[in-house]
Design a protein around this nucleic acid. Structure first.
Lengths: 158, 158
DNA sequence: TGATGTTTGTTAATCAAGTAAACAGTTTTT
DNA sequence: AAAAACTGTTTACTTGATTAACAAACATCA
């Protein structure tokens, strides 16, 4: 079933496109993500936030007073893994763990002024970078890409 | 700029779709990949190969006699990182490091019969799983998804 | 009320994937 | 022949993530 056994000697961009792997969604998704993530890092700069820290800040801005457990659920990670992320954002002074009257277990996450400013600046840079990265795609193509990715994400409920 | 400040109380699937993060390609790509990767693991089973080991085997089947350095380039990883992957595949008996006459630095990677069989079985399972995962997408939608992801991948050359 | 169970955030140990740097052989170049 | 480059490898490290155990706080209910 190895279609390309004889092509090894001339292995290059074109030939590689015909390998089995290229017909799998997972491989293509991962390779595309690696590129987009690299552009994200370029956008936020050498000492910028990591994608997951940016995500956490973004969601805290969109949903102020969210609890850690709710944020972990939205992000799709374990609550234990979120601790370091929130620690980092708090150390930057980008958010605070605020006590919630009525339940002393919970600490609501609220972005600070600095956090909001840093977030908006980073968001602008990231949007611009993605804009340039996707400049080859038409408006319809972009909409389609988002629609298809969200359709896959909706499959989570199995 | 926090559009949804007031929606926290009712945060759920619908509201989350309107957060800033949902408009970024990177976030959507990553979330989609996580799901597809989980399905991959289900497909190959509890003790099956990891995606990267499967990828390495797949490319070795598609391009037999490929060298480690060429394989690393195709996979987009460092050659040092490939050593453990090839070690693992060799330990399974799925491929061999064959000496290349004329250059004693190089070892050509050749899949064994068992490797070919294991690969084809795994490929079938993975294809079936992806087929079911993407059953909501029309043929045109799938083609479009692949085309768009490959278009992003081509942006690598910057 | 008090015992039992659950929730929230946290720590610690561990794992997987990946990088960077240094190294030994082996070829290539000058 | 000497210097440079290439291939595979080891080692140390970083990042992202998970599991398990735990303490404090809250909820249930007999």
């Amino acid at each position: 079933m190895a279609k390309n056994s004889s092509k090894f000697a001339t292995l290059g961009q074109q030939e590689a496109d015909t390998a089995d792997l290229e017909s799998l969604v997972g491989y293509n998704l991962k390779r595309a993500y690696i590129i987009v993530e690299a552009h994200f890092r370029e956008a936020v700069g050498k000492d910028g936030m990591s994608a997951r820290v940016f995500s956490a800040l973004s969601l805290t801005v969109s949903y102020p007073n969210i609890t850690q457990i709710a944020l972990a659920r939205v992000m799709g990670i374990e609550r234990s893994g979120l601790v370091a992320i929130v620690d980092e954002l708090e150390a930057y002074g980008y958010l605070q763990r605020a006590p919630v009257p009525g339940d002393r277990r919970i600490q609501a996450l609220v972005p600070t002024e600095e956090g909001l400013a840093a977030y908006n600046e980073a968001l602008g840079l990231v949007r611009d970078k993605e804009e340039r990265l996707l400049s080859d795609l038409t408006g319809v193509e972009r909409q389609t890409l988002f629609a298809l990715l969200k359709k896959i994400r909706r499959m989570e409920e199995d």
